[in-house]
Structure formats: structure tokens, C-alpha cells
Amino acid sequence: MVELLGPGGNLEMIEAVFKAGADSVYAGVLGWSRRSKKYEMRDEELKKAVKIAHDYGGMLRAAINAMPKPGEERMYIERLDALYSMNIDAVILNDIGLMKATEERYPDLKIVASIGASILNREEAMLYREAGADMFVADCKMNLDEMVEIKKYTGLGVEVLIHANTDFTYLGRCWMSSYKSLKYETVDGKAYYIGSPNRGGVCFRPCLLGWKLTGERVYASDFKLPNDMFLMLDEIPEMIDRGVDCLKIQGREYSVQLIHDLVRLYRNFIDDYIERGEVDMEAYRSELDAIAEKRDSERLRRTLELMRAARAEKSEV
């Protein structure tokens, strides 16, 4: 049975995601995930999050997928020990070295190679497998044939983002935001880089600024570099048929209601397909379009907030 994974930006969202029918939820460890501190959790909240998940019969994955500063490996192990003692069900990791350390310390803990690892081919996936990964998140540009090939070759589970954004770079291979603006501070003694999503801070989304292409003259102006949100629907039945293991909805920074509605829709869609082998695509598409409108409006507000923050070098975003 394919797993439906929802975002946990706060405890209220975690509750809502399970009420809406998710099988599992992911939550960010404060200072250690690829999102702003606003959407991450301290240990006390994480413990409550695990309880909520387990009370619903679900699972909690801890996102600890920011790249730490070299020398913070010991701090990572302390965080890992704390998470393991909370009975989390899996960790989402980016760094292959930390994956190896995790596997050696807790061989029974499930490890998911984050989309930030940018696994692009079967040989690369195999190295992650050898380092301890159990599942990988497919890059948004990867097609289903590629995912299935990797799964067959490595034995790794496949996770696909069905609500996320995709831009013109591979997700873990973009440093444009920190090239534009970067503020270095610490959170509970850990280095924290506002402006660098790879290192745990926000992305200021500079790709969405108005750009021009210049050379001997101005060739083009007022365009954006690709960064588009997508919501999958038509592709999901084939993904289920061909053995995709997990469908993930991103969105820790969105409103609780929006995420609840999204999870509910996908839960119903998956159940309909699995039970009946077919779904009323038109009905679902029209429902999804209505949710997408709300999502776009929330995203635009957030993008403007981030762009203002980049210009002002604000730290609380």
C-alpha cells in the first residue's frame, strides 16, 4: 500500500494531517531542516508530535536534512540520540556521511535520502544505499521510468513529491539565495545560515525576481527564472501501479486548513483508485484547482515576505 506523507509545520498541522487521512507526517528538527525556524520544532514539541502520530496509528519522520557545519557531527549524534529516544519512525537526511554514521549507530532506524541529496542516477542511489539509506526522494525532474530503474537496481524505496515546487536547478544544487544574501548566526549552539536552504535557513527565492538577459544589448527583460508549484493527479494511478512507495505533500509553511484539504483530497483519490481501479478525474481536478488557487495566494504572500527580508537582511523569516 502506498504511503501518504503530509507536512508538519506545527502541532496543529500534524493533528490536521492525520485527521485528513495521512499515513505519516514529517516534522523539522529546530535548526536542522531545510526550512525556516518558524516551521521547525523543539524536542518538547517533537515528543508531542510523535505521540499524535502514534495515537493515530501513523508514523513520524524527523527532517534533519540541513547540511551541518563540519565539526558539528558530534552535535548531530546528540540530536539523533534524542530523536531515537522519542521513538521517531524515520529520519530524513541529506548528507551521505551522516547517513553512514546513523546507520552504524541505529541500524533499525529507517533512513530516507532527502530530495536535497539530489540523487540523479542508479549508481549514485546505490552509494546512498550502501551508506544506509532505505528510501530516496526522487527529484522533481525525474520521470517514472528512471525512478523504477533506480528502485530495481538498488532496492531502495521511492518517494515522490506530489505537491511541491520545481525550479530550473536541482533542489540540492542551488546556492543562488545565499549568493544574494546570507546571515550567519547560531541556534542552540548550532550554526544557522539564513538564506541558505542547504544549510538550514530559508531560500529568499531570488529566481522569482524580475530578470534581464544582457550582453552586447538587452536581449530579454522582466522574466523569472523557472520556479513553479505543481500538484500531481493524473500521474498518481500509474505511480501506484508501478510500485512508488510513498507520495509526499510538501508545505510546512502553508496554512493548516489548506494542508488539511490537500491531504483529504489525496487520501480520497488514492483510496478510490485502490478500491475501484478508477477515479473520476474531472471531479478531483476541479477540487484540486480550487485548492491550488488558495495555495498560490499564500505562496505569493510568502515570496514577497522573503524578498523583502533578503533586501533588509532580516533574520526572522
Partner: peptide, 28 residues
Amino acid sequence: GLANVYTASTAELLYSIGVSRIVPAYEL
């Protein structure tokens, strides 16, 4: 540099499989 080597753990892992030189991640 695009191999994204950010941590000493990853440097150690790569060294152990036979990588002898690393251009560290540009963000370091």
C-alpha cells in the same frame, strides 16, 4: 565542487572508498 561535500563525515566516507582529493562545497 558540485559533489556537495559539506561535512567531515562525507569527506571521510569518500576518502575511504578511494577519493583522494575534494573540492569542498562552494558554500563552505
